[in-house]
Design a protein around this nucleic acid. Structure first.
Length: 466
RNA sequence: UCCGGAGUAGCUCAAUGGUAGAGCGGGUGGCUGUUAACCACUAGGUUGGGGGUUCGAGUCCCUCCUCCGGAGCCA
């Protein structure tokens, strides 16, 4: 008798007919009548369930008919052709052993639940069809990212999660401290009354990282092509379906490269990871297409075969000014594009992904390379229909004097960036990189509309239960 | 954080200011091929918290909390 996974049987059902098998898994649903019954068993290996037929002749038949959903079982039986039309084969059970009984108050029913409710039981929701598909996809998509970069000789760099001071300057950060906040009187103070971080664990103020970019640039100057893939944190009070306080980000960085090379890489990567996922998870993608987002597969196929549009910020402003529709926020050169503007460009004008590049320097970060016009920087955002900004990147300022000036212009402290500036002193090269929000890519590929539903245990304001 | 909507049984939702209900889920029984199985019976409620108006509040008013959506911040 062979131990089998449901995936092995259901991927090649004909090859297993007549085979004696030993299965184990959980009851997804159970239906019984007086003399026989059906169990849909999920063993974790496959999105789909296998049907178990059990009959009166089993010694524990009565017990089995009353088993609650989620009960775990060991099953011995024979693979047979199924008379029913919904499955090619089923298991004729010869022995069913209860491994772990479930309780009758198991909260998941054999019907649709709202995503809101399922978020309150994040420890159980991976057992539902939707979240089973989502989180298997998440695993495969993560692997797709690594495959893409590893096949192209990128070096994977683990940048730190705890970071010194707020050098990165990208939004609110979570403090990291060993001071006892329950006992404020015990927290050391300087003579001027401020918290004395010199006496804290790291002898300085530390935070959770908002980006690994600055650190990964240092490795870029050694390995030429590098990427990070890890968690980042934002303490913003953002209450939207597209923001989380903890999320994973992919940040490639390439040396001897400019903004066009950067966009080429981003476009190639997006197409690769989409195709990779579609190829490996046909059942899950079909499920998303049918139940989550009807046009999903068409749209994804379209992305893979299309050429992403590339326009400059200045061209985008002209397009928006010519638009027939009115916008809530004014369109004016020098102001940042609003969500409504980005959506208009990617959903109405081009109806496909759009790179917008060369933004005014005053609305972008200090490290972005100043263009020859001295008014714009070599920045780019990739806008996707439906999810908006999915990638933000730039060519980095590789010229020491320019970078130093920009740091000062932005009111930042040059001393804080001593090691970052030294990269421009010791053999500087043009280089570029970008950040891809992993969860946002997940949303786009699965059709899920809320970031809280593509992160196993999402952290958002007021929510860190699990 | 701002704007809007919502909060009633385990879940999804009804209920003109006048006796709180249904479907699903749970329990019990029935049923010889089911597919969110079906049929019958049954248990289940501090209507988010607090305050107010009223003879009477799930319903009207105030306030707080939480969730959802839009916006901002961004990835």
């Amino acid at each position: 008798m062979a131990r089998r996974l449901v995936k092995e049987i259901l991927r090649n059902p004909q090859e297993h007919i007549g085979e004696k098998v030993h299965l184990s898994g959980w009851i997804r649903t159970l239906r019984s009548s007086k003399h026989f019954g059906f169990i849909e068993l999920n063993d974790g290996s496959f999105f789909k369930n296998i049907q178990i037929v059990f009959e009166e002749k089993l010694s524990n038949f009565e017990e089995i008919t009353r088993l609650p959903i989620a009960t775990s079982l060991e099953i011995e039986g024979t693979v047979v052709e199924s008379p029913g039309s919904k499955q090619p084969v089923e298991i004729q059970a010869e022995k069913i052993t209860v491994v772990g009984l479930s309780d009758h108050d198991y909260p998941l029913q054999k019907k649709r639940h709202s995503f809101e409710f399922l978020r309150t039981i994040a420890h159980l929701r991976p057992r539902t069809n939707t979240f089973n598909a989502v989180f298997r996809t998440r695993s495969v998509l993560a692997h797709a990212i690594h495959t893409f970069f590893q096949e192209r000789d990128f070096v994977y760099v683990h940048t730190p999660i705890i970071t010194g001071s707020d050098c990165e300057g990208a939004g609110e950060m979570f403090h990291v401290t060993t001071f006892d906040l329950n006992n404020p009187a015990s927290i050391p103070r300087t003579e001027s009354g401020e918290t004395d971080f010199r006496q804290d664990f790291f002898s300085r103020e530390t935070n959770l990282t908002v980006s690994g970019q600055l650190e990964v640039e240092t490795y870029c100057m050694a390995f030429r092509k590098v990427y990070t893939f890890g968690p980042t944190f934002r303490a913003e009070n953002s209450n939207t379906p597209r923001h989380a306080a903890e999320f994973w980000m992919i940040e490639p960085e390439i040396a001897f490269a400019d903004l066009q090379d950067n966009m080429d890489l981003a476009e190639e990567m997006m197409k690769f990871i989409i195709q990779y996922t579609i190829d490996r998870l046909p059942e899950e993608m079909e499920f998303f297409n049918q139940w989550i987002d009807k046009g999903l597969l068409d749209r994804l196929h379209n992305i893979v075969s299309s050429t992403f549009e590339r326009i400059t910020y200045t061209e985008a402003i002209e397009l928006l000014k010519k638009a027939k529709q009115t916008f809530e926020y004014p369109v004016e050169w020098g102001r940042d594009l609003q969500t409504e503007h980005e959506r208009y460009l990617t959903e109405k004008v081009f109806q496909k992904p759009v790179f917008v590049s060369d933004y005014p320097k005053d609305i972008k970060a200090f490290y972005m390379r100043l263009n020859d016009d001295e008014k714009t920087v070599a920045a780019m955002d990739l806008l996707f229909p439906g999810v908006g900004e999915i990638i933000g990147g730039s060519q980095r300022e590789e010229r020491y004097d320019y970078l130093e000036n920009r740091i000062k212009e932005m009111g930042l402290n040059v001393d804080d960036y001593w090691w970052y500036l030294q990269l421009r002193k010791y053999g500087t090269v043009p280089h570029a990189g970008y950040g891809l929000g992993f969860a946002r890519a997940m949303m786009y590929i699965t059709g899920m509309e809320n970031i809280r539903d593509v992160i196993p245990f999402p952290r958002t304001p007021r929510n860190a239960e699990f």
